[in-house]
Amino acid sequence: MAGARAARGSVVTEAIAAHTPGNPMKRSDFPALGFGVGLRRPHYAEILESRPPMDWFEVISENFMGAGGRPLEVIDFVCAHYPIVMHGVSLSIGSTDPLNRAYLKDLAALARRLQPAWISDHLCWTGVGGRNLHDLLPLPYTEETVMHVARRVREVQDLLGRRILLENVSSYLTYVDSTLSEGEFVAAVATEADCAILLDINNIYVNAFNHRFDARRYIDAIPPERVVQFHLAGHSDHGAYLLDTHDHPVCEAVWRLYEYAVRRLGAVAALIEWDDHIPAFGELVAASAEARHRSRRALAQRDGALAARSIEPSAPREFED
């Protein structure tokens, strides 16, 4: 990984240039990072001391927006040795409050310092009336909301000078007034705003249970070219609903849905998220390796199916298991 920063510098510069709003988006505008994990405090010492092999790290933007001290010391080291992406939780892109200019200024300053391969946040609202819930609340899936969010995304992208990724959130409620499916809503926002998508496979699985929809049809609605990253995580079963807790291993059903997404959407950078009851770093590395293995297998299955279909017109549906 030595010299990763220098090598990454040119890739990121090219990527930012390609992200300039107005150019048609292609997934290849973004670097192909491979398989990473979230950078979390319990692993700082191990990463700093042993510099383990890892394709890339995702960092929570807000954790590094302080003026100085240990967090910035750590992130500067990580940036010197690994590609990173910035993942925020406070953009509140769906709020009806004005965009928080001070927050965006800090975000832009952090991006200048860290030079991330990309910047992401969530397709949700986190507060209103100047108050913050510190949670990711869903929006009504309507054409009006699409336009509201897209206008704000374009403003953020203009300010940051690059396309951002928006992530689909887990949710426990939906609105009676919604006229679109969630998958259609995510796709419509990304298209209207001309932004990229961070597709959280676990969130789709959780929401499919909580709101009773077909997770595969959700994925089918997503435009492949806009998907730049996958999230994989664990959840908790509360009986009546699934809670997106990020405190368990990725379950087999989510792995299978991930494989389906890879077959449908192609080779996409993937990241293991773990935020509570965080295990030893090695367990995250193993989960990342599992994502790589399953991605390769899914792509091979897809390519095999495509080849078979070109020979045999009556072959089964391309993305069926």
Partner: peptide
Amino acid sequence: PPTEPSIFYA
């Protein structure tokens, strides 16, 4: 109630 984007200020 929290008013800042970062939970650090809570």
